[in-house]
Amino acid sequence: MATPMVRAEAVHKNFGRNEVLRGIDIEVAPREVMCIIGPSGSGKSTFLRCINHLEKIDAGRLWVDGELVGYREHGGRLHELPDREVCHKRSEIGMVFQGFNLFPHMTALENVIEAPIKVKKEAAAVATERGRALLDRVGLGDRLDAHPRQLSGGQQQRVAIARALAMQPKLMLFDEPTSALDPELVGDVLNVMRDLAHEGMTMIVVTHEMGFAREVGDSLVFMDSGVIVEAGNPRDVIGNPQEQRTKDFLSKVL
């Protein structure tokens, strides 16, 4: 079997005395789309942020593409990775945020080409070429020079997806990408994500969009208070939940 793209073993995380993650075990295969659902405060966003080391885990092990996240194991001990290597690993993982977090002082195109030029040291012409193509692909080929504030939420989020894809990541993390959008703008963003999934991108999507999870997801994880309550095929989990807690949650969101 191929190396899993993401593997978590008993991942724990606490903020002070507050335990946010209490033992997460998952495996995400290459080209798999995993959706994570659960009530707010269940730790799903925190887990996502652990995968690219925006948060440090306190116990357990976490691997991306067969390599430990944030550490190197040597002589039976863990050594923190230097900043340079942490950044290099992050550059191979795309992340899309609930609040878009586009750089407001740059145009859409500048947002997309900033990291390829400054982090991957690509030639400006090459990065611009791909940036244009990516923005075209997410349906914004005519808004290259718009500043984020001149774009709607849906358009901003699609620029944010293009910005992440510009780094040619091997894994994409989506943190409630449509939660801050007006209902009528959600569809465009989900379509872009659906296309991405069909092209074989490995994706972990924290979402409240059950339709998307059922249709596009290969697997579904239901999290509550820092643990995985139920996981499996999306159709099974949504259509025929086994745990009472899952049933309660689904009855509220469906």
Partner: peptide
């Protein structure tokens, strides 16, 4: 400057000094 800006920049693999120079200070 919103914390999300630094986070987004870090997620793209940008280092602290680069984030300060290109993302935080201009804003």
């Amino acid at each position: 400057v919103d914390q999300g800006q630094t986070e987004a920049a870090h997620a793209l693999g940008m280092r602290r000094s680069l984030v300060m120079r290109r993302i935080v200070l201009p804003q």
